[in-house]
Simulated assay, not measured.
Amino acid sequence: MKAESGFTLLEVMIALAIFAVLASSVLSASQFVVRQSGTLQERLFATWLADNQLSELRLKAPPAQGRQVLRQRFDQREWRLEQVVTPASAPRLLKVEIAVRLVDGGPVLHHASTWVRARDE
């Protein structure tokens, strides 16, 4: 009798099971990367919006003290900027804090603060 070489059914099933486990772990990792890149993009846009708002405040007349909620449309989404202006320890400065989040809720994606000159009295 001549012996034939090849894979048995059991060996093929084990190889398929190993491949299935590896494929599912790769799919899970890729889903995590896609989710993280979306979050990273939101944080980047929130940083840009906060920096733009702070730059505008530095260029304009000094802002009034208090809390203000602004809405801006950027990247086909609505963003909510919460701006708080308070007096700083130095009499000629105001402290401005801005928190940015998406309008539909969720956590603050970026928080920034700076000082701007106060109104001349």
Rank of each mutant, 00 (worst) to 15 (best):
P107S: 05
N52F: 08
A50C: 02
F7N: 01
V34A: 09
M1W: 08
E11N: 00
L70H: 06
V108W: 03
K2C: 05
Q31A: 15
Q41D: 14
P87R: 06
W48Q: 11
K2F: 02
E121D: 13
S24N: 09
W115S: 12
Q76P: 05
G38F: 13
A50I: 05
D51I: 04
E56Y: 07
Q41K: 15
S28L: 13
A20P: 09
L93W: 03
M1G: 13
S89M: 10
S89I: 10
V100C: 06
F7P: 01
L93V: 06
A64R: 12
R101L: 04
H110M: 14
Q72W: 11
L22E: 00
H110N: 11
M1F: 08
R101S: 06
R80P: 01
G106D: 00
A20W: 06
T86R: 13
L16S: 05
E121Q: 10
L57K: 00
I98C: 04
A64L: 06
P62F: 03
E82I: 02
F19I: 15
Q68A: 12
I14F: 12
A15S: 05
F32C: 13
S55P: 02
A61Q: 12
D120V: 13
V69W: 01
H110E: 15
K95T: 09
F19S: 15
T39N: 13
T39K: 14
S55W: 06
L40Y: 15
A112H: 01
K95G: 06
A118R: 12
I98E: 05
P107Y: 02
A23C: 07
E97T: 09
V21T: 11
L22I: 10
L109S: 00
H111G: 03
V116Q: 00
L93H: 03
I14H: 08
T39V: 10
Q76C: 06
E42Y: 10
S30P: 03
F32P: 04
F19L: 15
S24P: 04
R43S: 07
V12W: 05
I14T: 12
L59P: 08
S24Y: 05
K60V: 04
A88W: 07
Q68G: 08
R80N: 02
E121N: 11
G66K: 00
I18G: 05
T39L: 13
I14D: 05
A15R: 02
L57Q: 02
R35G: 13
P87E: 10
L94W: 07
S24C: 09
I98T: 04
V108H: 04
E97A: 07
A20M: 06
R58I: 12
E121R: 09
Q31C: 09
V69F: 00
S55D: 09
D51V: 03
R43F: 00
R58T: 04
A15F: 02
S28N: 10
G105E: 01
F74P: 05
Q76D: 15
V100M: 04
H110F: 14
R117H: 11
S25R: 08
R58D: 07
S28D: 11
